[in-house]
């Protein structure tokens, strides 16, 4: 036991020294580097982004048009996480649990029913207006999904789980993903046609809705899984 304590204190000292060395080096690199001015490619993005008539949110221009390939791979990463959760969704609920099954709160129960529609509308608004201001499919989906979680906390997770047919949800999710994929391929092969001749906005909104739908279902799947298994030891 004493030996263990000794080796732990050695480990502790060594860790603190090594990680602080890393921190010190990085901090000095921050101060020794050139003071930031807008990087060259950043300036190009700003110039080109402001030229596009319908897109006033340049950040959206970057991740929704110029670098849409990255965004698609990001969507794939999200889908992989959701797929991982669904693979493990048949885990047996543990017999050993700790604490209350559900914390009853009158505030949550009372406010959920009228706050949820507001959250849903806000999510939709973000998906529709990503090219004009902050927002986008991911944010919209996460807001919608956590809104449902809110509802589930007031109505009971099992009840909400029954209301959403898992099989159909899965189909819708993957069809939305296929849609985003096709948009990427067309956008890369014929960017002029998609983003300029068609004025872009229609396509962008539809793609955002598809991403939003996918993320919405995925978020709900993840949150529902963890709510279902809460309190298990």
């Amino acid at each position: 036991m004493e030996m263990d304590n000794f080796s732990f204190s050695v480990k502790k000292t060594f860790t603190v020294i090594i990680v602080s060395l890393f921190g010190g080096l990085t901090i000095s690199a921050v101060f020794l580097g050139r003071s930031p001015d807008t990087a060259r490619i950043g300036r190009l993005y700003l110039e080109r982004g402001f030229e596009l008539e319908n897109i006033s949110n340049t950040v959206f221009g970057v991740y929704g048009m110029f670098r849409f390939y990255d965004t698609l791979l990001e969507l794939m990463i999200f889908s992989t996480a959701v797929l991982g959760i669904t693979i493990f969704s048949d885990l047996e609920p543990s017999t050993r649990t700790r604490g209350e099954q559900m914390i009853e709160s009158h505030v949550v129960t009372a406010s959920a029913s009228f706050l949820y529609p507001i959250m849903a509308v806000f999510g939709l608004y973000l998906a529709f207006s990503a090219h004009l201001g902050p927002g986008g499919g991911f944010a919209a989906g996460v807001i919608g999904g956590s809104g449902i979680l809110f509802l589930a906390l007031s109505k009971g997770a099992e009840e909400m789980g029954r209301r959403f047919n898992e099989h159909t949800m899965k189909r819708v999710e993957y069809i939305a993903l296929v849609f985003a994929m096709l948009a990427m391929v067309l956008g890369i092969l014929f960017p002029k046609l998609i983003f300029e001749d068609l004025q872009g906005i229609g396509v962008i909104i539809v793609v955002n809705m598809a991403i939003g739908l996918k993320v919405f279902i995925g978020t709900w799947a993840i949150l529902h899984f963890f709510v279902k298994h809460r309190g298990e030891v």
């Binding site: 020794l32 580097g33 050139r34 060259r40």
Partner: peptide, 23 residues
């Protein structure tokens, strides 16, 4: 990115040429 200003490796290599700063 703060030093080089690009993410594309080809362009970044040109922009970093001769730069051996600590950062």
């Amino acid at each position: 990115y703060r030093v080089g200003g690009y993410l594309r490796i080809g362009e970044l290599a040109r922009s970093l040429e001769g730069n051996t700063g600590f950062s």
